[in-house]
Design a protein around this nucleic acid. Structure first.
Lengths: 361, 361
DNA sequence: CCGAGTTCCGGAACCGGTTCCACCCAAGCG
DNA sequence: CGCTTGGGTGGAACCGGTTCCGGAACTCGG
């Protein structure tokens, strides 16, 4: 393996000059720079990142902590992160952190504590105070995407607004018997993704109820004054379930099984849950959207296949953004301004497809 | 950040002894070893892997090259790899390599060529001769899982056997009009996963045809001698499609749309394709398995939900195995025997669920 | 023509470990 | 009792880069 001293010898310069010529730092005459570069490519020289990071303290490597890879959303985000890092010449070291087992302490105390990563991107994991302090003590920037830890750069969509928007879509279509399939733990953890979406659901329903109780306030809807009679409250129910297709399927069978109190619309916390619901509906002989409207969240790659109306978020783009923030915190980004849109929630938008329709009285 | 010299000073020994005590190499008196360890934990010493790898040449890090993370199968395998590496104290550097773009050359010539990884695990990517040589020149072990490169350790299921097994299952159930939804490119690349599964399908059909043409040979089936009349050939068709749910759905609609030549059984190259077919069948008002039997490959996490008969393979387990082989090639595994089951294909097994049934005359 | 400021370059220290080698000393052996 | 053997330890070289510092050469303004 050729070392930089070999390059220097071949080019007839010192190690110092060779280093300057190859790294671009410091002043080197254009002519000698070319000689060095030529010599390097001639013997196939490749710098050892270990040696470089030993002295500079920078590893050109960032750690990514993620609870699953095995799901569309996280996989997509990981791809976005990977692409962005690779483009910037960074390596990506993956730490797959399943639900708080013993592996977690090991990752933070051993793997991340070493000087092998310049920064850490944490996805959908709530860091403990100690974990944050441990990384800060080693001066490693942390960028959190989702999750609800403190004291770090944070990127997140506004999950409550998502719940609000999805529910309002169903309400605007005239649905009055609505179910929300919330993620497990939505009730116990009000600040979790599941909890916030459920809160948005409840708030939207509450607002609609107030509207219906007080006909005078109904102006925005443009309803004719004459027909302003008091309406009954919205029939809303929240069911907690695992946020995957099987969870949605099970919950859907249960929810839609009894024709008596069957809702006419379902807001599923994620698209995969929605897929499960749609399958359950079909299994029960219900037609979507005629008998049941369904809306999800994510704009999953299969959403179009299921013709699913959804609140779109772009996980790959979010990953890219997380990398940008991280590199900026490392001062390794052309743009100087530290954090342009810090704090602002990430974009989401309603994508209307064929799984939602006006309620048939 | 405390360095090993700090530990040495505190313990009253030399750097050399401190290094020996902490790494476990060489002879150190038990008493002094304890003193060093005590001193190290006292000041929170953590060894710099960069410095260590600079001199030892080992980085305790392996690179993983994978075409997607954004799919159940690859995500699952990645999880298996990650878990195994973490358990062995190794880091995992991820290189997500989308279909041969310019990124590919960059990954191999720049990222992997550096001395940052001890070994490379390549998943479902066909390495070029040059790529293999490049890594071998740097003495980095390569473990391939799937794909069809040469000259390296290789782990793979027997895809032809998979196709054979799946098709025989349908044939044994009495189906005579069978379609195979092969992966795109199955025809062009006979050694690819898609090509091999399709070959297995064709071979099984050919064998059954031979059987039906020559009634005398029919003994295994135990059919009564008297009824041994010559039967028509199996009606088999191969359709190439993208191996995902949308691909299966589209192909399914097309295939099942015309009641005239509708097959009674479909062998889908992957479970996700099968899911698409099942949805297409349901959309067309067909009942699975009454009107159509469907079999897939993978034992996807949703296979049970779709009640899908499938040929199971365990990607996470395959990932774990790949790591084991890689570490063994690095001599970093307790077991000394270099490659125990080298060459032998990985295990698969038929999982019969409710999506396949006996053909109704 | 002479100092000041640049540009360009080489020598050497340094990052933080590992390992070779030499040395000391105690135990075992003929 | 002298000699080997080998465990236990410290000094120093070394891995492969980067960077500080100082010197040489060259430019430029006064």
């Amino acid at each position: 393996m050729p070392a930089i001293s070999d390059v220097a010898r071949l080019a007839g310069v010192s190690k110092a000059t060779a280093s300057r010529a190859l790294s671009g730092r410091g002043h080197v005459a254009e002519q000698t720079r070319l000689r060095v570069v030529q010599a390097a490519s001639e013997i196939g020289y490749i710098a050892s990142p270990d040696a470089a990071s030993l002295v500079t303290g920078r590893t050109k490597n960032v750690g990514v902590v993620i609870p699953f890879v095995n799901s569309w959303f996280f996989g997509e985000m990981l791809e976005g992160i990977e692409r962005a890092l690779l483009g910037a010449g960074y390596d990506l070291t993956l730490y797959n952190l399943p639900e708080g087992g013993p592996a977690r302490a090991r990752v933070f105390d051993f793997f991340l504590a070493r000087k092998r990563v310049d920064a850490v991107i944490v996805i959908a994991v709530d860091l403990t105070e100690g974990e944050v302090r441990g990384l800060e003590r080693r001066e490693k920037p942390i960028v959190c995407v989702g999750g609800s830890g403190d004291a770090t750069a944070r990127l997140s969509i506004d999950d409550r607004a998502v719940g609000l928007l999805a529910t309002e879509h169903l309400l605007h279509l005239g649905h009055t018997r609505i179910a929300h399939l919330a993620g497990a733990g939505a009730g116990l953890q009000p600040n979790s993704m599941a909890g916030l979406r459920a809160a948005g659901f409840r708030d939207a329903v509450a607002a609609a109820d107030a509207d219906r109780m007080d006909p005078a306030a109904r102006v925005a809807g443009g309803a004719p004054r004459g027909s302003a009679t008091e309406l009954g409250p919205i029939d809303a129910i929240v069911i907690e379930t695992e946020m995957g297709m099987p969870g949605g399927f099970e919950a859907g069978l249960q929810l839609l099984g009894h024709p008596a109190h069957r809702p006419t619309a379902v807001f599923a916390a994620t698209d995969e849950t929605a897929f499960g619901v749609i399958r359950a509906a079909e299994r029960l002989g219900l037609s979507v959207p005629r008998d049941l409207s369904v809306i999800g969240v994510d704009d999953h790659e299969h959403a179009a296949l299921f013709d699913l109306t959804t609140i779109a978020q772009a996980p790959a783009e979010q990953g890219r953004l997380a990398v940008e923030v991280a590199l900026r915190m490392l001062g390794d980004d052309a743009r100087a301004d530290p954090l342009p849109d810090s704090g602002a929630p990430l974009a989401t938008r309603l994508v209307v497809r064929g799984s939602t329709a006006r309620a048939t009285a």
